[in-house]
Every structure is written in structure tokens, then in C-alpha cells.
């Protein structure tokens, strides 16, 4: 059982508060959605959690360990995986090699100067790719993949490090509806099977309300609602600032 406790996280850019006093708790088995209009501070929030940005104040604790101040790679090593809104993979490598890199990194075998990287951890990498439905494209260069496929590779890379907490920034952006559904189903399965704690942002409301166990609503840097999908859907403040006429 893992627990990510976020308390009063704040960050401003040049006097403009991007994230102001966000607090929440993420536990194993949670599939927690973070939603809000554009510019609400979702990506900033993610960057604060994985160490990309440093908060002005507040704390992020993983099972009691303070993460604030640690560089991203240390936070990763403690079990916090991440996927990016704008996909970031190693474009000059094949799909399988992308996953192998994570496995090599996790096994602390990156400083090897002799044995070819492509021959190490290939089987486990293929198994992970199979899990996300990318095994057939394992030997294609990552740089030529379709957008949705890259997202799936990113998920496989995130899973390769066997994280306890997974941060997914818009995991289904750019995907066709059927693909979206498949990815969310897969994510929900992973949460159940492995006891993962997942925090994700999403624009697609079907994905959010169809799969999330809980929902956080961010507006202008502040949390304005938290609860089960049904509770959030019914919250009048959420409806006014965010869901608007849709609800």
C-alpha cells in the first residue's frame, strides 16, 4: 500500500499564481482524475509532483518521504512514474529499445560500456509492449509512430519501472474514441491488478467520468471540488466554472 500525500502546494510565475494551495491524497487502487479548464494549473501541478518544477511552498510525501527538492530522476527511483502531455520518447530508438532503456535504468545497468543494449531486457520489454498492445511494432523506430501509439509506448515505459504511483498527463489526447476506451480500460485493470495509484488529467469527460474512482477539479490554481464522479458532476460550483452548459 502506497500513499502520496500532497499538502498546500503553491507555485507562482512572475507574480501570477499558477497553483495555490493544492492538497489531496492519492492511495493505492485510486484512479484519480484531475480536471479543470485550460490554464487551470494541471500541468504545473504534475511538474511540481515529479520534481520538474520546485514549489514555492508545500509538501509532497510518498509514504512519509518528502519529495519536494528532489530531482525528477530521484522521485522516479522512489516509484513515481510519469507520462507527458506532449509525448516525449527516444525518437532515435525502436519501440522496444525505449522500454529497454527504462528497464536498464531501473537495474542500474546504464553505465555498461560493452554488452549491446539492444540485447538486454528484450523479453521483459516485449512483454510490457504486449500488455499495451504495441508488441507488433516493437522494432519500428519511435520517431515514425502515430501519436496514439506513442502514448501507449509511454505507458509501457512508465510501467517498466514498476511504479507505485503513476502520473499521466492527458494519456489519451490525440487518440480515436475506440483507442481511448481501450487505454482507459487497460489503466483501470492495472490499478486493480497491481494496486497502482494513478493520477491523470484528461479533457475527455467520458474517460473521466467513466473510469475515475475519484475526481479533483482545479480552477485558477485552486481545488474547488473533490469526490466521486457523481458527486463532482452534481457540484454546482463545478458546473458553473467548468462544466458550464454541458451538465
Amino acid at each position: 500500500m502506497s500513499e502520496l500525500v500532497v499538502r498546500d502546494l503553491q507555485r507562482s510565475f512572475g507574480g501570477v499564481q499558477a497553483v495555490g494551495g493544492v492538497s489531496f491524497t492519492l492511495c493505492s487502487g485510486d484512479l484519480l482524475a484531475l480536471i479543470g479548464p485550460n490554464g487551470a494549473g494541471k500541468s504545473t501541478c504534475f511538474n511540481l509532483l515529479n520534481g520538474q518544477l520546485r514549489p514555492d511552498s508545500g509538501s509532497v510525501r510518498l509514504d512519509g518521504t518528502e519529495l519536494v527538492g528532489l530531482p525528477p530522476r530521484h522521485i522516479w527511483a522512489l516509484g513515481v512514474g510519469r507520462t507527458f502531455q506532449i509525448t516525449a520518447t527516444f525518437a532515435s530508438m525502436t519501440v522496444a529499445e525505449n522500454v529497454q532503456m527504462v528497464l536498464l535504468s531501473r537495474a542500474r545497468r546504464l553505465f555498461g560500456l560493452w554488452r549491446p543494449a539492444a540485447a538486454q531486457f528484450r523479453e521483459p520489454a516485449l512483454a510490457l509492449l504486449d500488455r499495451v498492445g504495441m508488441a507488433a511494432q516493437a522494432d519500428r523506430p519511435c520517431g515514425v509512430l502515430a501519436y496514439g501509439d506513442v502514448k501507449r509506448v509511454e505507458l509501457a515505459m512508465a510501467l517498466a519501472s514498476e511504479p507505485t504511483v503513476l502520473l499521466m498527463d492527458e494519456p489519451t489526447a490525440g487518440m480515436a474514441p475506440a483507442e481511448r476506451l481501450a487505454l482507459m480500460v487497460l489503466t483501470a485493470e492495472l490499478v486493480r491488478e497491481r494496486g497502482l495509484a494513478v493520477l491523470f488529467t484528461e479533457h475527455d469527460m467520458d474517460a473521466v467520468f467513466g473510469h475515475a474512482t475519484r475526481v479533483l477539479v482545479l480552477d485558477r490554481g485552486r481545488l474547488i471540488a473533490e469526490g466521486s464522479p457523481d458527486q463532482v458532476r452534481a457540484d454546482p460550483r463545478v458546473q458553473s466554472v467548468y462544466l458550464g452548459g454541458e451538465a
Partner: peptide
Amino acid sequence: MKHRHPTASPLA
């Protein structure tokens, strides 16, 4: 780069 044949593996 853009015109690379999509099925060609770099190591091939």
C-alpha cells in the same frame, strides 16, 4: 528524415 520508409528498422 521525414521520408524514411516506415517499416525499415534502423538496426537492419
